[in-house]
Write a protein that binds this DNA or RNA. Structure first.
Length: 311
DNA sequence: AAGTCGGGGTA
DNA sequence: TACCCAGACTT
C-alpha cells in the first residue's frame, strides 16, 4: 500500500484491509472483486491484484508460510527491489537495504551524487553505496531510520539540516547544495487530455454501470459508460457501437476533470434515455443504490457520482 | 530507457 | 502549476 503513497493516506485503508483479511489464507480465499473494493480510491490497483496473487501463490507454493529468502520474496508479484529489501530487513532482520524515494534523497545529499535518480543505473549505484552502511544486527531499525530521516528531516524542500544527526557527514550541507539534490529528470511533454462523454442512464434507483475491460485504464473496476469525443460521429452512434446502447440525449448534468499521473480526463456528463428494445453489452449492469458503495469504483467515477447525487 | 499505472498533499 | 510520495511492471 505504501508504494508511491503517503503513510497518512494508507493508514485507514490498512486497518480496514487487515480487519477483513487478517491472514494470508483469508486474503487468498477472497474474490478479487472484494479485494479491489477495499482498495477503491487508493489508486495503482495492480498493487491490489498483485497482493492477492501473492497471497494465493504463498498458499500454493509455500504452504501458507511467507518465504524468508530475498530471491523468493523478490519473485512475488508486486514486490520489487525496495519492497523485498524492506520485508527482509524489517520483518526478518536480515541485512538488506530498503531504498525508497526517501533513501535516494538522503544518500544523494550525503554523498553529493548529482546523477539523475530516475535512472535505474543511478538507483543501483546508490543501493551499492548503502550496502556497507547496513549493520548485521537490527538492520530493520536501520532501514526504517534511514527512511524516517528522509521523511522527517531531510525533506525534499527546505531540509531541516540544523536538526540532522549526520550533518557533519553531509557533502550537500558542506557545499550548500542540499536544495539542488537530488537531481531528477522532469517530464518534458505536457499531459494529454482526453475528452469523454459520460452517459448517466437511470431506472428508478438503479444506475447502468460498466465493468471495465481488463485491458483498459482502471481495468476490472466499475465506471459509467463513456465514449471519447472528437470524432465526426454522433454520440448516440458511438454509444451504440461501443455498448450496443440505443439511447437518446437528455440534459447536460455537468463536467468533471480528473488528473492521472500520465493523462487527464475531461468528462462531460449527460443523462440519457434508454430506448426500448436494446440488448446492451454484457459489461453493463443495472446497479441498485445500496450496491453502489460496495463496488470497486475509482475516484474518477466517484466524482461523477458526486455530481449526479450530491451528498 | 521510456511508458504505464492513482490519488492526494503541498508550495 | 508542478512536484512528490516508504515503486513495480511492461514494452
Amino acid at each position: 500500500m505504501l508504494q508511491q503513497t503517503r503513510v497518512d493516506t494508507v493508514i485507514g485503508y490498512y486497518h480496514r484491509f487487515l480487519q477483513r483479511f487478517p491472514s494470508i489464507a483469508a486474503l487468498a480465499e477472497a474474490k478479487e472483486e472484494e479485494v479491489l473494493s477495499l482498495w477503491q480510491g487508493l489508486g495503482y490497483y495492480s498493487r491490489a491484484r498483485n497482493l492477492h496473487r501473492a497471497a494465493r501463490l504463498i498458499t500454493d507454493r509455500y504452504g501458507g508460510q511467507f518465504p524468508h529468502t530475498y530471491e523468493e520474496v523478490r519473485s512475488l508479484p508486486g514486490i520489487g527491489d525496495y519492497t523485498a529489501g524492506a520485508i527482509l530487513s524489517i520483518a526478518f532482520d536480515q541485512p538488506y537495504a530498503a531504498v525508497d524515494g526517501n533513501v535516494l534523497r538522503v544518500i544523494t545529499r550525503l554523498t553529493g551524487l548529482e546523477k539523475d535518480i530516475t535512472r535505474p543505473e543511478t538507483k543501483k549505484e546508490l543501493s551499492q553505496m548503502v550496502r556497507p552502511m547496513i549493520p548485521l544486527a537490527h538492520s530493520g531499525d536501520f532501514s526504517q531510520g534511514l527512511m524516517e530521516l528522509g521523511a522527517l528531516v531531510c525533506l525534499p524542500l527546505e531540509p531541516l539540516c540544523d536538526q540532522c544527526p549526520v550533518q557533519s557527514l553531509c557533502t550537500a550541507y558542506a557545499t550548500g547544495r542540499q536544495n539542488e539534490l537530488p537531481v531528477r529528470k522532469k517530464r518534458d511533454k505536457p499531459l494529454k487530455t482526453i475528452f469523454y462523454r459520460v452517459a448517466v442512464i437511470q431506472d428508478q434507483d438503479c444506475l447502468l454501470l460498466e465493468h471495465r475491460r481488463k485491458e483498459t485504464l482502471l481495468g476490472q473496476m466499475w465506471g459509467f459508460p463513456l465514449v471519447e469525443e472528437g470524432s465526426a460521429r454522433s454520440l448516440e452512434s458511438l454509444f451504440w457501437e461501443k455498448y450496443g446502447l440505443k439511447i437518446k440525449l437528455g440534459k447536460n448534468l455537468g463536467r468533471v476533470t480528473h488528473i492521472f499521473t500520465h493523462q487527464v480526463w475531461q468528462m462531460d456528463i449527460s443523462s440519457y434515455l434508454l430506448l426500448p428494445g436494446t440488448a446492451f453489452a454484457s459489461t453493463l449492469h443495472w446497479i441498485p443504490e445500496e450496491e453502489q458503495k460496495n463496488l470497486a469504483i475509482p475516484t474518477a467515477f466517484r466524482k461523477v457520482l458526486q455530481v449526479i447525487k450530491p451528498g
